[in-house]
Design a protein around this nucleic acid. Structure first.
Lengths: 337, 337
DNA sequence: CGATTCCATGGAATCGATTCCATGACTATG
DNA sequence: CATAGTCATGGAATCGATTCCATGGAATCG
């Protein structure tokens, strides 16, 4: 079964391939007869142009690459959805790559995106400049989203990591907590680093206990949240509040609290970074640091279209806000100040 | 900046393009000198072959299409991840399309997948034979996952919808419930239809109340779960247990229960279809109908490779199992039999 | 009415790889 | 030593679209 080509369409319509192509791509210099003849032939044969051939000749693929750490993280699932929906508006197809929070898989996907000649790339990268060298050297228009790589001129859309964490720590100390356990993200990501730095700064500002033992380095995945909670709760002077740097680690940490019979909101306060719907179902509902994922996705695509157009847009920092719910009541016994 | 081609590599290496191509694709008939010369040139220039040109000449793209209803549904996020990871094993790139639980977007993605000349297609389709006609006519190797379309010979990997629901209803009636509210999925999907049918059959079998007013038709999205819960709970003789056909509708429904002060597990029993990690955090944790999403993704890819190879594999039905947790205790007052 | 412009069209070149085919060098065999 | 067989190679054809260029007919203008 030889595949159907524009030549077959042209033959059936009784025109040349040149004319058929012009009709198909909406070129103005076509006659009414040619247009109807070609459209009829297309419909009758069920012709669908070959995207590879088209992309080869034009130098554009109408495709953008999106490389994210993990779709199973609801935050990134939302982000992927937002990017894809916005890309549709610009007639871009989104080629999605899941790096699985793994440097090697991230590399492989960058390589694939370049090989596929995507018109642009949106990524939430891990690592440093060296890891992204191939991408940056290739000259493909790129925008970072959520995470960034230091010392590049790549435009980005990021949450205001510092403010969100700061508000959370202020809120907790305001409720009387002095020992706030922090389950951090990996330091190979900008979000992991910035949030940890903000936590430390906020401790200093609020005069809460600045104790290295209160920090656990996780990897943004659920199991490390559980490990972090275990580690922190097993200390001789355990924290009275926990703050976790993403939703998956929060899930792991809360599971550990439950399994130890520590009631969230009564025996221990909890704040999660990222607002996911299921967190509102908990009893009490979780206090979270929230941001507008949809806006983040839209901005990323909008910035990318600008880069593709040759402009150099300004980076965007989206506000975070603390949503206070039941998981962070005043510390029983009041401020131990 | 003219893009780098194999011609540049050949020139630099001092060989013909034919030889350069043979080296790059690992053809055996190449000399040691040619191999090193070409590899050096590739490295030095940072050459990356153009996937479009390659795909055009070979008739394969090393790409499979995956069309799912909604990544924001954790079940499908997991499935997407599983498919993608398994596809990697076969050196396939996964082109992901999010239909957004919408027939029109699904159509558009099928069209794009065909235009992109994917080597195979995995889909969780909605609609009927007519909606899939273009795909089926195209002859592209296809496998259905989770959902199917009736009256096709397309191999599929599906959960055992009937058994899961049946066990859930048996469990609930065993706990003394007679009025079991059911929040169903859309009847334009096979899973929506099969689960609803299984619910009705199970009611008959267990002699529970078979009352049309206990059924609400949702759309697998969170808002419809909330609407369903409201509708069911506002009746004069409301259900004592709720069963929702997917996780997002469960989230919506539980939120409504909470907002009305109905304690899950005490004032009302709840069973969710699909096991997501956050459900284990609820207090009490949710009784769910679970299945092995990873296996589903793996099987889908494995079946697809068989179809691509020209075989006609048997469809696979994966077992569901009821995981009983705290949300379905015995009905206070015992069986009202 | 002749010259000029405009427009639809056919045919050919092109995009960047792969692959077929012919060639020449070299090796094995009788 | 002649012939057949192997092997690396260069050059050309090819995949299926787009686009440039030349052409001829119709429309426009002075």
């Amino acid at each position: 079964m030889r595949s159907l080509t524009i030549k077959d369409v042209a033959e059936k319509a009784g025109v040349s391939v040149g004319t058929a192509s012009r009709v198909l791509s909406g070129h103005p210099a076509t006659s009414q007869e040619a247009r109807t003849a070609v459209s009829d032939a297309v419909k009758e044969l069920g012709f669908r142009p070959n995207a590879q051939a088209r992309s080869l000749r034009k130098t554009t693929t109408q495709t953008i690459g999106l490389v994210l750490p993990d779709v199973r993280n609801p935050f990134f699932a939302d982000l992927a959805h937002a990017v894809e929906q916005r890309a549709r508006d610009f007639e871009y197809l989104t080629l999605f790559g899941n790096a699985n929070e793994d440097a090697e898989q991230q590399d492989r996907y960058f390589d694939i995106m370049l090989t596929q000649r995507v018109d642009g790339l949106i990524a939430a990268p891990r690592g440093n400049l060296a890891d992204l060298q191939a991408v940056l050297d290739s000259g493909v228009p790129t925008v970072f989203v959520d995470r960034v790589i230091a010392n590049t001129k790549v435009p980005s859309v990021t949450p205001d990591n510092a403010t969100g964490i700061q508000e959370a720590v202020r809120h907790l100390t305001g409720q009387g907590h002095r020992r706030i356990g922090y389950i951090a993200g990996p330091q190979s990501t900008s979000t992991g680093r910035e949030r940890l730095a903000a936590y430390k700064d906020a401790l200093t500002e609020t005069h809460a206990d600045d104790d290295g033992a209160l920090i656990f380095l996780g990897d943004f995945q659920s199991a490390s949240g559980a490990a972090g909670a275990r580690h922190l709760l097993e200390q001789q002077d355990p924290p009275t509040a926990l703050l976790a740097a993403d939703s998956l680690m929060s899930i792991g940490a809360i599971a550990v609290c439950n399994e130890r019979g520590l009631a969230i909101g009564a025996d221990i306060a909890f704040v999660a970074y990222d607002d996911i719907e299921a967190f509102t179902l908990l009893n009490p509902a979780l206090t979270v640091i929230a941001h507008d994922v949809n806006a983040m996705g839209r901005f990323a695509v909008d910035l990318l279209t600008q880069v593709i157009a040759g402009e150099t847009p300004e980076s965007v920092i989206l506000p975070s806000r603390l949503i206070i719910r039941g998981s962070t009541p005043p510390l029983p016994g009041g401020p131990t100040q």
